[in-house]
């Protein structure tokens, strides 16, 4: 799953630690999500979207292969 976390964070001038503080998670978690090493749980994804004041699909989008798979298997 791709995400716009680094861009959204930079727009607001927040460090990874500051975002982690707002989300109530560790800095390592924010780092892992940004690097694509970890896909957050649905509750955490909603929380991230809420922190930025956006819809969840404005923050996260599926990889192309995932999107194709979803279209073929609705």
């Amino acid at each position: 799953m791709k995400n716009r976390l680094p861009v959204l964070r930079a727009e607001r001038g927040w460090s990874q630690a500051a975002l982690a503080e707002r989300l109530g998670v560790s800095r390592q978690t924010v780092n892992a999500i940004e690097k694509g090493r970890y896909d957050p749980s649905l509750p955490l994804a909603f929380k991230i979207a809420a922190v930025f004041g956006l819809a969840i699909e404005d923050v996260f989008e599926p990889e192309e292969s995932e999107a194709v798979h979803a279209e073929r298997n609705p």
Partner: peptide, 11 residues
């Protein structure tokens, strides 16, 4: 100091 959330737990 480690904050054990969902990602850290999986690690």
């Amino acid at each position: 100091r480690l904050l054990v959330d969902e990602y850290v737990r999986s690690v």
